[in-house]
Simulated assay, not measured.
Amino acid sequence: MAKHFPDQKLMANMTAKMLLELGAVRFADQRPFTFTSGLASPVYVDCKRVISYPSLRGTLLDFLLATIDRDIGRNSFDVVAGGESAGIPFAAWIAAKLSLPMVFVRKSPRGLGPQASIEGDLEPGARVLLVEDLTTDGASKLQFCKALRRAGAQVDHAVVLFFYNIYKDTLAHLDDNGLRLHWLADWWAVLEAAQEMDAFARDDLENLENFLHAPLEWSGEHGGATRIGTA
């Protein structure tokens, strides 16, 4: 008998509403947010707030596990890896749910050798699932992925709670580097949920929608980078 999973669109809508209820979606007051990539944005999602709310956290973990089962298969990997630092708690909870070993990946290596960026025991050839809280343009996911591969791991999939899903060619670039991304919600789901909930002022929603349709142009107009990979 085929296994049935929760509807993907429903999970995206519920995830977006939970992030809004937690106050995880923030609008910049005066100056825009600027990411490490140099991109400017009028909005920011703080997924780290999830760790302080056990009930909602449990629901989101169930959604992540359903996404893993549907899109990857829990028998497709041997180890769960969290990216420093926000990905670590989510990776730990998923590893515990699946009774699998866990490691975490540092942003910068400590010491020398192929495992200088890895904390925990990682056997060469291990199939690793990379877990993070969110993805903007995918750059940090590839950095973590390269560190895991240098240590001898096989990394084909990454899962996150939130994906910006507004920067052109992000998914294609990840795919070209052998990494497939899976996520619960994106900015389009948040926009829809915010409109349903009447969560923000009309001007804020209009500004958000303008940004989502032309994020690089918005960034350039507000002092940020105008393309991926530049500051």
Rank of each mutant, 00 (worst) to 15 (best):
A2N: 13
K3I: 13
K3R: 15
F5L: 13
P6T: 07
Q8P: 12
K9C: 13
M14S: 07
A16C: 13
A16M: 09
K17D: 12
L22S: 02
L22V: 09
V25M: 06
V25Y: 02
R26P: 06
F27M: 06
A28W: 03
D29K: 10
D29A: 15
Q30N: 14
R31H: 14
T34G: 01
T34I: 10
G38T: 07
G38Y: 04
L39K: 02
A40R: 10
Y44D: 00
Y44V: 13
V45H: 03
C47Y: 03
R49A: 11
I51V: 12
S52I: 08
S52E: 11
Y53W: 13
Y53Q: 07
S55Y: 14
T59G: 00
T59R: 04
L60G: 02
L61R: 07
F63R: 02
A66Y: 09
I68V: 05
D69G: 10
D69R: 00
D71T: 10
N75I: 06
F77W: 04
V80H: 04
A81R: 02
G83W: 09
G83F: 06
E84Y: 09
A86C: 08
A86Y: 05
F90M: 02
I94S: 05
I94V: 11
A95I: 08
A96L: 11
L100V: 10
P101D: 15
P101Q: 04
V103T: 03
F104G: 00
F104S: 00
V105R: 08
R106T: 08
K107V: 15
K107Y: 13
S108P: 01
P109H: 04
L112C: 14
Q115P: 01
A116W: 00
I118T: 01
E119D: 10
E119N: 12
D121R: 04
L122F: 13
P124M: 14
P124A: 12
P124G: 12
G125I: 00
G125H: 11
A126Y: 06
A126M: 13
L129E: 08
L129M: 11
L130M: 09
L134T: 02
T135R: 05
K141W: 05
A147P: 01
R150M: 05
G152L: 03
A153T: 06
D156K: 07
Y164F: 14
I166G: 08
D169S: 14
H173D: 14
D176I: 06
N177E: 14
G178M: 12
R180S: 15
L181E: 07
H182D: 12
W183N: 09
W187T: 01
L191R: 01
A194M: 01
A194N: 10
M197A: 15
D198H: 14
A199I: 05
D204M: 01
N207C: 12
L208N: 06
N210E: 14
F211W: 00
F211M: 00
F211A: 04
H213V: 13
A214E: 13
A214T: 15
P215F: 05
P215H: 09
L216S: 12
L216M: 10
W218F: 11
W218V: 07
G220W: 05
G220E: 03
E221D: 13
R227C: 15
G229M: 10
A231V: 08
